[in-house]
């Protein structure tokens, strides 16, 4: 069947929802989509200039990459959470506690250590998901609580001394190994996100949860699983973290949550989440973030200044990229 055709005037606008519809112009959207990539090139160029090309030397690139792995992996989990319209502010505590678990169990073999880290992360993620879904508490509140709770636990477990992992774990601290793990994790999540119904389902929940439920999606279950998955993924990142540092103190993973948020937002991910989620945000965003960080160090800004600059960059990018129409959906 075919209903009478009348396609001369595509896309009628109605009332107030039309005000910002120029934002939906294809050319503008294509431009907006490529902004993070342009940003990455610009920021590398600027810092290369300011540091007399020091930032693009192999030694500094190596240093930068060492910080990228954990951030990139953990961002992948948060990416999923933000796609359903949530936030996770407990990532730092998850990384800290999972790193302690990895260290404890590293004495029983590397696979056991990895499994323990992921189990610890997954449990905290499930904790977040459970309270968010069952008690209908907005996720940022639940995860702030989790942040304090598990940061406290971290501090308790490291009261007397840092928790050291088995000595030989640092033997794994070689670039190819870390790159392989990071790339395989990202690739796995990407393929699942892109080629199974998971991607479309997560975006739908972020873009309109009620309608998603009416389309046959078990929204509560999916949200619970997403938080758990984010915990598992960060638990995996904890393994790489331990490889890097060897022993864990109370502050391990501090501020990871804000670093992830800044990175994803820099990568072009609207902080309100939802249908505009693009996987490339993770990679581009974390790279921009690390270049920015190391550039500031090389330019000899002290930590206080670095933090202030990061804060300013964060608010500026959020203000520029935020999707005002869908603000009420942050869960």
């Amino acid at each position: 069947m075919r209903v009478q055709d009348d396609n001369e005037n595509a896309g009628g606008t109605s009332g107030i929802s039309g005000i910002k519809s120029w934002l939906e112009h294809p050319a503008f959207q294509a431009f907006q989509a490529s902004l993070p990539f342009i940003g990455l090139i610009v920021i590398v160029a600027v810092f290369a200039h300011l540091t007399n090309m020091r930032i693009v030397r192999p030694a500094s690139i190596n240093l930068m990459l060492r910080q990228v792995y954990v951030l990139m992996i953990a961002s992948t989990g948060v990416f999923l959470i933000m796609t359903v319209g949530g936030l996770d502010l407990s990532q730092g505590s998850i990384l800290g506690l999972s790193s302690i678990a990895v260290s404890y169990f590293s004495f029983y073999g590397i696979p056991v250590a990895v499994a323990a880290g992921m189990a610890a992360g997954g449990l905290i993620g499930a904790f977040n998901g459970f309270f968010h879904v069952k008690f209908k508490i907005p996720s940022f509140i639940v995860t702030i609580c989790a942040m304090f709770l598990f940061r406290g636990l971290c501090a308790y477990l490291t009261t007397n001394a840092p928790v050291a992992a088995v000595m030989r774990i640092t033997d794994l601290n070689v670039t190819w190994f870390k790159v392989t793990l990071t790339v395989s994790l990202l690739l796995t999540v990407f393929l699942i996100f892109r080629f199974t119904k998971l991607g479309i389902v997560l975006k739908a929940i972020g873009a309109g949860e009620k309608a998603a439920r009416f389309s046959g999606i078990r929204t509560d279950l999916v949200k619970f699983l997403v938080f758990t998955a984010a915990g598992l993924i960060t638990g995996f990142a904890a393994f790489l973290n331990v490889i890097n540092v060897g022993s864990i103190t109370a502050t391990a993973g501090n501020q990871l949550e804000t670093q992830i948020l800044i990175a994803l937002v820099l990568g072009g991910f609207p902080i309100s989440g939802g249908a505009k989620a693009r996987f490339s945000s993770i990679v581009v965003g974390t790279l921009i973030f690390c270049v920015l960080n190391n550039g500031l160090v090389m330019l000899r800004f002290n930590t206080a200044w670095q933090q202030m600059i990061r804060g300013l960059v964060f608010i500026a990018v959020v203000a520029l990229t935020i999707d005002r129409k869908s603000l009420q959906v942050i869960k």
Binding site: G208, S215, A275
Partner: peptide
């Protein structure tokens, strides 16, 4: 806007969702 359609999603995703399986 709230129940029939996923308001923030594209026409494509809205049409495909119930048949996604």
């Amino acid at each position: 806007d709230n129940e029939s359609l996923v308001y923030g999603a594209s026409i494509r995703d809205n049409i495909c969702l119930p048949s996604i399986g």
